[in-house]
Design a protein around this nucleic acid. Structure first.
Lengths: 166, 166
DNA sequence: GCCAATTGCTTGAAGCCTAAAGAAATGCAA
DNA sequence: TTGCATTTCTTTAGGCTTCAAGCAATTGGC
């Protein structure tokens, strides 16, 4: 039986196994690397990965960000950020104040000590990452960057589609 | 100042920015897709991603696996699996018994209902994944598979190196 | 100015996750 | 056989994470 592309509408069971295998491999890579980074951050600096990630976001901006901004950039829920920030303020890494123009808004920044601490960690972190990817050639890295950009776009489109239906 | 490759030993600050950017992009892709899948599993089947993943592992083997096996395959801690299994046994998806030959070992399997439920979810899940990756050509998929395999190998090597030092 | 909708954040309940310590069973070597 | 190391799993403490509900402040339409 031969079918042309128009016939798709009848919903034949297509083969989607390749995409599934790709997704599982992507997930494996990320889990593996994440675990490795988490372990090194812990044993070397006694810091958790989420704390490090949050500080990384703040290091990019001198004047701080709102909790919502952090939440969007880290792609985690608002409530999650509330707790993380709480602990990092407690430990003296972060500085938090209410916005002058909008009293709902909390602006957080790295303290001087927090920034110094982060820079120290980030320097090593970058070397770990380079080591983890060291078998990849510069071309591999470029190709991966391109393909992952395409993947990201595709995933966002798909997510967008679902969001509209809901 | 010109330096040849021999001079690396003096530890010049090399440029590792590309690898870092690659890692962040990889992480973004995974987080994005994971969130999407988590949301769909929740709204469509009221199941969590870890539960689904655990059931996926068990669906591959008819005779069940030990908790340690599951733990290794899912790349999560032992204690984590203990809790997950507990809840899935409670809900009737899993069957658990102590090994006949080694009383330390717990063997878990999908129940009949659990397997049916999983198959139902997996069928849709696979379509979601295909949709999420739908902008990628077959060649893109192949290339990504290859590059991620290389990445996985590289990361494992790096992790291995660290494990030996410790 | 007033009210409804929206926005920014927090809280609470439930579950996920890790690292570390501990209990039970096994295996192996003296 | 005895004793010690190892393996398998559980427990505990602490932290991360989501979702949903809720509160407070702001915005926009009238």
């Amino acid at each position: 039986m031969i079918l042309d592309s128009e016939t798709k509408a009848v919903e034949l069971p297509e083969d989607h196994g390749d995409e599934l295998r790709l997704w599982l491999r992507l997930l494996t890579c990320t889990t593996l690397i994440e675990g490795e980074v988490r372990g090194r951050l812990r044993e070397r600096f006694d810091v958790t990965l989420p704390r490090f990630d949050l500080m990384a976001q703040l290091d990019k901006v001198p004047d701080g960000m709102t909790l919502s901004d952090v939440s969007k950039r880290m792609m985690v829920s608002n409530g999650n950020v509330t707790g993380l920030v709480e602990r990092l303020v407690e430990s003296g890494h972060l500085d938090r104040r209410t916005s002058d123009t909008d009293r709902r808004v909390q602006v957080i920044r790295l303290t001087k000590a927090g920034r110094a601490e982060f820079r120290r960690m980030a320097a090593e972190h970058q070397i770990w990452i380079a080591d983890i990817f060291s078998d990849l050639s510069p071309k591999d890295v470029r190709d991966l960057m391109r393909l992952l950009a395409k993947t990201k776009g595709s995933a966002q489109k798909s997510a967008q589609k679902r969001a509209l239906q809901a």
